[in-house]
């Protein structure tokens, strides 16, 4: 199975890519089945509408299909498709008038973020309710901040992975996260002052 360096799943992915390029539709379907869950998981942090989420994931997979011959197997297929998915999400958000992730309101230029103490979600809240609140707050953040928070906190990507995905340095990831978290706390308390009780 493939080179000794390759994980078995990675070797299987490469195989499926080759078969897809040779015209095997079923192989592409299997690739989609492998990663659709992770892409839907990403998309749902950007839209609460299931139809919109499906549009985004669909666009990402079709884009990947068209560029499949550019997949060189140096990174894992997952890394490759995930990057396409992140770019697709950000494209769609830009089309919808969200501020782009790069430039404007560059967080490096924004003044020192004031640390605000953050309340934990009330123990009585259900996961679903917490999630609604969190996404409502994220919706209010500039895209530049929402994206680092989604990638770090929900998607549990490492700083290095986030840096690679967004084409920024690790230091920038760190400082963006710092400011994004400060903004998140501010917006949370602005939208839900009842949580600031203590």
């Amino acid at each position: 199975m493939g080179t000794p360096m390759m994980e078995p799943a990675q070797a299987e992915d490469s195989q499926l890519v080759q078969e897809t390029l040779a015209g095997n539709r079923m192989s592409f379907q299997l690739l989609v089945e492998r990663y659709e869950g992770r892409l839907f998981s990403l998309a749902r942090h950007y839209t609460r509408n299931p139809v919109d989420a499906e549009d985004i994931v669909q666009e990402a997979f079709l884009k990947a299909f068209r560029r499949l011959d550019s997949f060189d197997g140096r990174s894992s297929f997952y890394t490759w498709i995930y990057r396409i998915a992140v770019n697709t999400v950000l494209d769609v958000m830009k089309r919808r008038g969200r501020s782009p992730v790069q430039n404007v309101e560059d967080p490096e230029l924004v003044g020192e973020a004031r640390p605000v103490s953050c309340p934990a979600p009330d123990a009585g809240l259900h996961t679903q309710e917490v999630s609604e609140i969190t996404h409502r707050v994220l919706e209010e953040l500039p895209e530049i901040f929402r994206t680092v928070l989604v990638l770090r906190e929900f998607e549990e990507q490492s700083y290095q992975a986030i840096a690679d995905l967004l084409g920024i340095s690790i230091g920038t990831v760190e400082s963006r996260l710092f400011r994004a978290r400060a903004k998140f706390k501010q917006k949370l308390l602005a939208l839900y002052p009842e949580f600031g009780g203590a």
């Binding site: 539709r25 592409f28 659709e36 989420a53 079709l62 934990a120 917490v130 999630s131 969190t134 906190e153």
Partner: peptide, 24 residues
Amino acid sequence: AWFRTEGPAEVPEGFAARIARRAF
């Protein structure tokens, strides 16, 4: 703690087959 995962995302029935058909 605000970024609690909601469990696996729901994938619409037959999504992969539909995408593969559309791609081809």
